[in-house]
Amino acid sequence: MAEKVRRVELAISLVLRIGVVVSVAVIAAGLGLMFAHHGAYLPIRGHFSYKELTSKATPFPHSFASLGHSIAQGDGRGIVVLGVLILILTPILRVAVGVVSFLYEKDPPMAIVTLYVLIVLVGSFFLAGV
């Protein structure tokens, strides 16, 4: 029993760690590109205010079509958003790994519980119209 739980724990911990490392690497690369492409962002005492990037009118990708377009152009913004999406998908992936692990460890009640959570999560993305 304890050993079964241990194997599920290690699998889930591994998924979380991979998700975290990959998303940080992608976000850092995107941020680097943003500053490399826009010299005005860099000076510590420049005239360019960050507020131009955090106002309501600031353009940034918020659909899969615009995200794909932005990444294809090598735009840092799109790459950062991709990294954030990897971060958002990490908990969902760890639920999926939970389902598989509980099935593999022959624990049907917990596998059903985890499967329900996975269905609700995936459903929520479709309901949002992603």
């Binding site: 976000i27 990037l53 940034f60 913004r77 950062v80 958003v81 954030v84």
Partner: peptide, 9 residues
């Protein structure tokens, strides 16, 4: 459109 890259990063 609530996830702004310059804030989220």
């Amino acid at each position: 459109g609530q996830i702004d890259p310059i804030i989220a990063a």
